[in-house]
C-alpha cells in the first residue's frame, strides 16, 4: 500500500513537472547556434574515408538547424555560418546537390550573399556538369539580383540544353528577355523552385517570398491600369483603391507595408538583406559593449 502511494505520488510529481515544462515554453531552451566547422581538410581526416557521409551530415545539420531556428523558434537564422557550413560540405563532396539546392533556397534573395552563392553554385556546376538546376539557379541569380541579363541568358540556355523537354525555360526566357517583366519572371522561377522542395521549412520560407512577389505583381498590374486610365502613375497605393482598381492593398507577408520606392516601383519593407551579417562579429561587439 505504501509503495502504491509512493508510486502515485511520484507519478503526480512527474505530471506536474511536464506541465511546468510546457508552460515554461521556450524559456528553458538553450540558445540554438549553428556550429562553425573546422576546415574541410580536418573534416576529411576525421571522416576516415567517408567524406560524402560527412558532407551529408553537415547538410542535415544545416537543414535541421534551419527548421528549428526559422520555422519553430521563429528566430533569425545565422545565415553566414550556415553558408560557411554548406561551403565546407560541398568542399567535402562537391556533388552534394542537397547543399546547392538548400543554399539557393536560403540565399538567393539576400543580395549581399549573391557573389558567394554564385561561387558555390559554380563549384557545383564543375562537378555536376549535366545537372540543369545549377545553371538554372545561376541564371536566376544573375538576372534578378545582379541585373545581368546577358550572363543570365547564357546560363539559362545551358540549363535548357540540359533539359530540353521542360517548357519552363521557354516562358521564363521570353519574359526575362523580351517582355522585361521581372516580377512575372520571378514568380515563375519561384513556383518552379517550390515545386521541387520537400522540406517544410524551406517551403515556408519560399512561399512567403512567393506571396510577396504575387502581391507585388498584382499591385504592379493595378499601377499599369491606373497609368493608362489617368495618363500618370499613382502617387500612393491608396489612390488605386480610390480609383476603384483594387479593393484593398494586400498584406506584406514580411510584416511591413508595400510602398513605392524612389523610382516608383512597388517594394516590400522586407529587411532580408540585413539578415546577412557576421554573427560572430556582432556577438563580439555586443560583448564589447
Amino acid at each position: 500500500m505504501k509503495r502504491l502511494l509512493l508510486g502515485l505520488g511520484l507519478a503526480g510529481l512527474l505530471a506536474w513537472l511536464i506541465a511546468l515544462h510546457s508552460n515554461l515554453g521556450g524559456k528553458t531552451m538553450a540558445p540554438l547556434r549553428f556550429p562553425t566547422y573546422p576546415p574541410a581538410l580536418a573534416l576529411e581526416m576525421m571522416a576516415l574515408g567517408n567524406k560524402e557521409l560527412a558532407s551529408t551530415l553537415i547538410f542535415y545539420n544545416a537543414q535541421f538547424y534551419f527548421g528549428e531556428k526559422y520555422a519553430w523558434r521563429k528566430e533569425e537564422p545565422e545565415y553566414q555560418r550556415l553558408f560557411a557550413g554548406l561551403d565546407k560540405a560541398t568542399d567535402l563532396d562537391p556533388r552534394n546537390m542537397d547543399c546547392y539546392y538548400f543554399a539557393q533556397g536560403l540565399f538567393s534573395d539576400i543580395k549581399p550573399a549573391i557573389p558567394v552563392l554564385n561561387r558555390l553554385l559554380k563549384k557545383g556546376l564543375e562537378s555536376r556538369p549535366t545537372d540543369w538546376y545549377l545553371p538554372f539557379f545561376l541564371s536566376a541569380n544573375y538576372y534578378f539580383q545582379l541585373k545581368d541579363p546577358v550572363t543570365a541568358a547564357h546560363y539559362l540556355q545551358k540549363a535548357a540544353a540540359l533539359n530540353p523537354d521542360n517548357a519552363l525555360f521557354a516562358s521564363l526566357s521570353a519574359r526575362m528577355l523580351y517582355q522585361g517583366n521581372q516580377t512575372e519572371a520571378a514568380v515563375l522561377y519561384l513556383r518552379a523552385f517550390i515545386k521541387e522542395t520537400n522540406n517544410p521549412s524551406v517551403q515556408k520560407l519560399l512561399l512567403k517570398r512567393l506571396y510577396a512577389l504575387e502581391a507585388i505583381h498584382y499591385l504592379e498590374q493595378a499601377v499599369a491600369t491606373f497609368t493608362t486610365q489617368h495618363n500618370r502613375p499613382p502617387r500612393t497605393l491608396a489612390e488605386l483603391i480610390h480609383a476603384g482598381i483594387i479593393k484593398k492593398i494586400p498584406a506584406d507577408p514580411y510584416g511591413g507595408t508595400f510602398e513605392f520606392d524612389a523610382t516608383g516601383r512597388v517594394v516590400t519593407t522586407s529587411k532580408l538583406a540585413e539578415a546577412w551579417k557576421d554573427h560572430d562579429k556582432r556577438d563580439h561587439n555586443q560583448q564589447a559593449q
Partner: peptide
C-alpha cells in the same frame, strides 16, 4: 531527409556503414 538526392544519400550512408 535529403531534399534532392535521397537515393544518393542512401547509397552513401549504407556504404559508409559497411566500411
Amino acid at each position: 531527409f535529403s531534399m534532392r538526392q535521397p537515393l544518393e544519400v542512401a547509397i552513401n550512408y549504407s556504404l559508409a556503414t559497411v566500411q
